[in-house]
């Protein structure tokens, strides 16, 4: 189990709309939210938390471009300089014939590159056990967590009480 060395106080909500208004409330009070854990992606949460847009798709474009170049330059080198062969009277550099493989390798590189990047930057791999605050957050509960170094316990408890959390717990992770 990975250790984060954090003392966390967290509230459990029963509905994503309650959680979303709690997050907005915390932002208006300038309380620093450590993280929220939800069983499914809640739309509007990124804006409420002030998360920056993910740059994953930009990385995907770069990987795709590498795939395009690999295929195009690779086939060009093979067919024009490494071992030129005339196939059925076609030119040595038959660019239209390259289109399918260039396309496939673009997709292949972009997909694998993005997926590997996704799991790496999220710290998700087989064998990893990331600390979980509450097991029910993959079922039907929505969790909002504060780091006790950022938000004092009394302030946090008052906040959870005000925003309708059904449970408040503390945990060291």
């Amino acid at each position: 189990m990975r250790q984060l060395n954090k003392n966390v106080i967290y509230g459990i909500y029963s509905d994503e709309e309650l959680l979303l208004s709690a997050v907005r409330n915390a932002k208006s009070k300038h309380l620093e939210v450590m993280d929220v854990f939800t069983p499914f992606p809640v739309h509007g949460m990124d804006q409420a938390l002030g998360l920056e847009e993910s740059r994953l798709h930009q990385a995907g474009f770069v990987y795709g471009a590498i795939g395009t170049l690999t295929a195009f330059l690779g086939m060009t080198w093979i067919m024009t300089s490494d071992w030129p062969i005339i196939f059925g009277g076609k030119p040595y550099w038959p660019v239209p014939s390259y289109i399918p493989i260039v396309f496939e390798l673009t997709v292949l590189f972009a997909s694998w590159g993005m997926t590997i990047t996704f799991y790496t930057i999220c710290g998700l791999w087989p064998g990893v056990s990331n600390p979980q605050l509450d097991l029910r957050t993959t079922d039907d509960k929505f969790c909002l967590a504060f780091d006790k170094n950022d938000v004092s316990e009394s302030v946090a408890r008052a906040f959870f009480n005000e925003t309708g959390a059904e449970e408040v717990n503390t945990k060291s992770i």
Partner: peptide, 10 residues
């Protein structure tokens, strides 16, 4: 893979 359901991961 150690999924937790964090907002950034989603």
């Amino acid at each position: 893979f150690g999924w937790t359901g964090s907002a950034k991961h989603w």
